[in-house]
Amino acid sequence: MLYAIETKEITKHFDDITAVNKVSIFVKPGELFGLLGPNGAGKTTLIHMLSTMTEPSSGSAKVWGYDVALEPGSVRQNIGVVFQDTTLDDRLTGRENLDLHGRLYGLDGKTRKKRIEEVLSLVELADRADVLVKTYSGGMMRRLEIARGLMHHPHVLFLDEPTLGLDPQTRLHIWEYIKKLNKEEGVSIMLTTHYMEEADHLCNRIAIIDHGEIVALDTPESLKNMLGGDVITLELEKSDDISRLCEIYQKNGCANIVTEKMNEIFITVENGERQIPHILSLASTAGISIQAVSLRKPTLDDVFIHHTGRAIRDKEVSEIETVGYKIRSRRK
C-alpha cells in the first residue's frame, strides 16, 4: 500500500543536539495527521525534513512514494507547505502571490486562472484577492498561505502551527478550512501544533512528540481512553504533604498518579464519581487536608502529562508573547 508519508527511523542532529530521534511514522492517504508536542520538541525539524528543506542525518522518509533525499524534486511537486512564519510577498496582491506560485509549479495560464478562483473561494478570500497582502490581517494571511499551498493540487499538505498567534475566533475559522480542504480536496495533511484542542478537534490520528521522540501515537479517542476513566484533581493545602499522600494512594491501588504542580495531584481512575469519597476519606484519615477536588474526563493534556510527566501548557504563555513581539518587530 502506498502511504502518503512514510518515515523509517528518521533522525536529525544539530551539532550536539538531537532534534528528531529515530521517528517512524506511517500516514495514510487522506488522513489528517497531527504532531503534538511542546515548543522545541522537533516537530518543525521533522516537517522541514519531509518537505526537503533540511536533509536527515540518518534514516529515510518517503512522501507520496518519493524519497526525500533521493527525489527532492518529485517530493516538492507533490507537496504544499505552510510554514510557521509567513512566506508571502506583502508587496504583491493575494492573486499575484497565487499566480507566481502557480507559475513556479508549472501550471499553464488557463489552469492557474481557474485554480486561483477555486482556492480563493475555498478560504473565502475572493473579495480581497486584489489588494496588497500588506493590508491583510494575520488570519487572512494564514488563509492565503493555505490557499497557495493548495494551488498545484498537492497530494500532501504540511501545516506548521497553522493557528499560532491567531485569536480564538480566527482559529476556529482556520480549523473549518482545514477540515474542509481535507474533505473536499482529498489532500493528506500533516500538521504540527502545541494546542491540545486543535489536535483533538482536527486530527484523525496524533503522534505525541517530546524531545524528538514519538511517545504515543493513536487516535485522540484511543489516546484518552488509554488513561482509563476519569481524572480526579486534588488540591492540597500544604505542598509538604504531597509525597506522603501519593504513597498512601499507591498503597491503596491507585495506579495513575501524577503531580504536576507543587500542590496538585492528578489521579486517573475508573468511575471517578464513586471513588471520590474513598479518596477523600483516605486523605482525612492520614490528617491531610484537601482544599479542592475536581473530576473530569481526560483531555490530551492528561495524555501528554501521563507520557512525559510534564504539562504542555506551561510554555504557552511565554511563547505567545514572543510571537506577538516577532510580528510587531516585522511590521516596522
Binding site: T52, R76, T86, T87, D89, L104, Y105, R148
Partner: peptide, 13 residues
C-alpha cells in the same frame, strides 16, 4: 528576512 525566500526555495525549480 520576510520569509518569501522559503516559498521560492521549496518550489520544484
Amino acid at each position: 528576512e520576510f520569509g518569501f525566500l522559503k516559498e521560492i526555495l521549496i518550489a520544484p525549480v
